[in-house]
Design a protein around this nucleic acid. Structure first.
Ligand SMILES: [Zn+2]
Ligand SMILES: [Zn+2]
Ligand SMILES: [Zn+2]
Ligand SMILES: [Zn+2]
Lengths: 138, 138
DNA sequence: GCGGTTAATGCAAGTATTTGCAAATGCTAA
DNA sequence: TTAGCATTTGCAAATACTTGCATTAACCGC
């Protein structure tokens, strides 16, 4: 049982168009933090007719279904990660840009507390937390 | 010792221009979650000549100094809060849009853990955490 | 008060993303 | 097959910022 995004789409009644297939392929073959523009470039190479708004709309759909996560890592553009490849988080230094990768368990306590105390099911699958790293703490 | 943003700017060697004074006034007199466009509208009413890029640049400066916090509450535009008025967070339901306000202490444990284990000083002064509220949990 | 220096501003163009709408196309049922 | 219909797409325009650059104006020292 692999993380078959296309299969899941079909199963849920979404149409599997060539555009969607290519967008999903680009996400699957990426290094896991791919931007809309990068997806667009890859898809366009095979099928120059596609429009970038289709890329954004497909990403929106995949987010809603929970198949990809969207994370703002402070670059002025957002990056996408296939949810099936596992969860983790990032600490991002606002001074030097350094990042530290975190295991998803770092936010487990918070997630549990929010569910227990507020009945809120927080989406903490792929977060960027901003601040200052050891080197840049004044 | 009030949260005198203008005084702090001056003290740090920034020039106190009429534009900055009006932008700061708009932030101080807001309900604490004001957008750039709303600040712009208020400032413009007094001084039609100002440009919105000045508003954005001033907000950027105030963020850097730590005098305001910037938070994406999922509205497609970001909101600003005077840091001197105290910290808190929001849970935002991605389904119905409902929000739950949280005391800043909810993230204290996380903040401490990040500092202790990674030497990372996280800026957790005004966060929006997305997810699903009790009503919308399926 | 009065220039000089340099930070801050206005303006226009650029980037990332979203949206309305009409045309195209996948899927269903006949 | 093929018509019917809803979904998806392309396109163009809109939105929320951001940035480069020339001009303006705080603020410092005289
Ligand atoms: Zn990541
Ligand atoms: Zn750093
Ligand atoms: Zn708030
Ligand atoms: Zn809800």
């Amino acid at each position: 049982m692999k993380q078959d995004i296309l299969g899941k789409l079909e199963e849920l009644g979404y149409r599997v168009t060539p555009q969607r297939a290519m967008i999903v392929a680009a996400i699957n073959h990426s290094d896991d933090h791919i931007s809309a523009e990068e997806i667009y470039a890859q898809v366009r190479a095979k099928y120059p007719h596609v429009n970038i708004s289709t890329v954004y709309r497909t990403l929106e759909t995949l987010k809603e279904i929970g198949l990809v996560t969207e994370t703002d890592m402070g670059e002025g553009r957002v990056r996408y990660h296939p949810a099936g490849k596992g969860h983790h988080h990032h600490l991002v230094c606002q001074e030097c840009g350094a990042t530290i990768d975190l295991d998803e368990t770092v936010l487990s306590n918070l997630k549990d507390a929010l569910r227990r105390e507020y009945g809120f099911l927080a989406d903490l699958r792929h977060l960027a937390i901003f601040g200052h790293c050891v080197k840049c703490k004044q």
